[in-house]
Amino acid sequence: MSSAVIWEIRNRVGHIVLNQPERGNAIGSAMAQALVHAVRQAGSADIGAVLISARGKQFSVGGDVGEFVQNRAQLPALIAQMLDLLHPAMHGLATLPVPVISAVQGPLGGGGIGLALCADLVLAADTVFLRGGYAALGLSPDLGVSYYLARRAGAARAKYLLMSNRPVPARDCLRLGLFDELHEPQALQAAAVALAEELAGGAANSMASIKRLCDAAHTQSLQAHLAAERSAMLGCARSTDCDEGIAAFVEKRRPLFRDRH
């Protein structure tokens, strides 16, 4: 796999690490192909969680504008080719049946926003900022950026952030619900790894059901949602992890969940 993205498994956590710090982890052709490969690995691995992080000063500046400049005459074709790769991968990453966490250590913009916010839980350094970037280039959002901004902050706020193209400091991102936790820069990675490993040790059916139900909450009626909750609850109740969880509660000890997807 290209070194643009590193994939590795530690303690049942799959790590997806953006690894082009000298380019601001810009999402160009090489990064796109490497991300697709990493997501495929995550989809087939025996893991309990995924942690997305990045090396360098930026989490990701978004699209590789330098590559856009080099291919101005064929820009629509280049963008179409990249999105045909990336959008299915983004869907696959967001819908993994395990918790996905992102650790945002530096500024993020453009498609980097989608890569960070597609996670179920977003941890960030308190020094970072978010900036759309699309409006300045005469482009519209991709990689789910408008989707995740609207779901987390509301459509009106998402339009303001993307149209105004103003930088949003980390504490404002936390207030708007874009980030879930803020940490001092030097403490971020350890906090994100600890959370990922904690969730990776959780009950697999419970985690998958919580994720699926919450993600579906705005797309179906209350009646349909209650039926989905019933089905999920019964499925979890039949699992050996449920037996273990109840036994651990009675015995006042930590549960040792062992079910796998």
Rank of each mutant, 00 (worst) to 15 (best):
L130I: 13
I16F: 02
G111P: 06
A208I: 02
D243Q: 14
G63P: 11
M233V: 06
Q41C: 09
A216R: 11
K211W: 01
A196S: 15
A190W: 04
R72N: 09
G112F: 02
S60N: 08
A119T: 11
A200D: 07
A153P: 04
S146V: 09
L115F: 05
D120F: 07
G14A: 09
A125C: 08
Y134V: 06
R12H: 15
L117Y: 01
V39H: 03
M31W: 01
A150F: 15
I47D: 02
V61E: 08
V168F: 08
F68K: 07
A191R: 14
R253K: 13
A208K: 05
L83V: 01
A208E: 10
A232C: 06
A54S: 12
P99W: 07
R12P: 05
K211S: 06
W7H: 01
V61S: 10
F68G: 11
G132H: 03
L149E: 14
R238H: 11
P88F: 08
N19P: 00
V98Q: 03
G43N: 10
N25Y: 00
L256G: 03
V104H: 03
L139W: 04
G110C: 04
P97K: 00
L108P: 00
A156N: 12
Q74H: 11
I210L: 12
R10I: 03
G63M: 13
L121D: 12
V168P: 00
D120G: 13
G14T: 09
P169S: 05
G48D: 05
N11C: 05
E244S: 11
V69H: 14
G202S: 14
I9H: 07
A124Y: 00
A153H: 07
G177F: 09
A38Y: 12
V65L: 12
S239G: 04
M1P: 04
T219D: 15
C236A: 13
R212S: 12
A116I: 04
Q81H: 14
H37G: 07
L83R: 09
A191C: 07
S239Q: 01
M207F: 14
L182I: 09
